[in-house]
Design a protein around this nucleic acid. Structure first.
Lengths: 198, 198
DNA sequence: CACCTTTTTAAACATAAGTTCAAAAAATAA
DNA sequence: TTATTTTTTGAACTTATGTTTAAAAAGGTG
């Protein structure tokens, strides 16, 4: 890969990052191409050299984030044999990742409101892929009989909800450090999937 | 109150309902005043007779929803002496209400992206008010020692998150009826606040 | 340096949608 | 029925902002 194309890729990433950080505060529709560009000391016209349009920029941000998340959880499943530890690790990682990438996560809350057609299909497929990895982790805990097989999806939704909702209340200025916070959340969330009599 | 003013009020409510149902599917920014009006067989000009502007319409929808929710939870606290039952009831009611009013709930997910200034303050205050009612319910369970006092806010956020995230996955066509679903969710969520050894 | 390719610019363009307004229609009251 | 008030209309207005484009600038290569 030539230096040129590497440079272009880097610029693309920078643009995506600039976009997501502004979108986080203001929301997609309140973020203008002008702001995104200004943030990088460019003019909005330049953005169209890298992205077909604003929608395309948004879409690529989402795909990037989801692919990274899937990579995370997949490697956790691969590297942990103990089901409980694996789930615990997955929850912690999800939370930490969410804290770190809060910006882009916020965008993906309601994909139906931002994407349609092929783009929406792609996003939903990636989300589904991620959800299935979580299901896998839960299914591995079946023998503990903490949850019934038919409730896996429900429990997964409860867990993801409790975590993803963080974008509503998490603040870096909070009293807990992000590690402590993740640990504490994990502790409470694990209660959902643990057997009553321990 | 004269017949006139009653009629005006009714019309306002109709407009709010029309707006929220369209906003639910499309998102606020993809919903036009024209659509909202057309849905009621009116022209968009008429909407401005009832609401100052689009923003005002959105705001009033949110306030209405939040006030109703607060009314719900307040009456639950008032009418239940047993802490555990009260919390259980509150969770069930919250879920049922969310299912029923899915449309408007979806709007309030990220108030910072839709409101600013006084409006945002009002919304946040109402949300805070609701949260405090939930905290009250949790605090009443302190003697069970299932959660520590300093974790009340965290636990409340986890519970609200798991529930509110429903707007992401709930479908009326799901396999469970809304009653069953609410009951099952409540069962799993109560595990978070129950003591380990029961 | 001279040539070619890539990148950036700034201005022009396009358009969707929120808002205003004067006039018409409908509802109510006397 | 006539007069008055309320409601609705539909066209005109306004503005914000995404997008296009031709030309300039920068970067790379022989």
């Amino acid at each position: 890969m030539s230096l040129r194309t590497l440079k272009t890729k880097k610029k693309k990433t920078e643009i995506i990052q600039s976009a997501t950080s502004i979108i986080e505060e203001k929301g997609f529709h309140n973020t203008t191409m002008e702001e995104i560009a200004a943030n990088l000391l460019m003019t909005k016209g330049s953005l169209y050299y890298y992205f077909k349009n604003k929608q395309d920029l948004l879409f690529q941000s989402q795909v990037l984030l989801l692919e990274q998340s899937i990579g995370n959880i997949a490697s956790i499943i691969e590297n942990n044999t103990n089901p409980k530890n694996a789930l615990k690790k997955a929850i912690t990682t999800h939370i930490e990742y969410l804290i770190e990438e809060q910006a882009t996560f916020a965008m993906g809350v309601n994909p139906e409101q931002f994407f349609e057609g092929d783009q929406l299909d792609t996003i939903l497929e990636l989300r589904h892929n991620y959800a299935q990895h979580v299901d896998q982790l839960l299914l591995n805990m079946m023998e503990e009989k903490a949850i019934e097989t038919k409730d896996v999806k429900l429990v997964r939704n409860l867990l993801l909800g409790a975590m993803n909702w963080m974008i509503e209340w998490y603040s870096p200025q909070g009293s807990l450090g992000s590690d402590e916070l993740a640990e504490k959340m994990t502790m409470y969330l694990m209660k959902i999937v643990e057997t009553e009599s321990k």
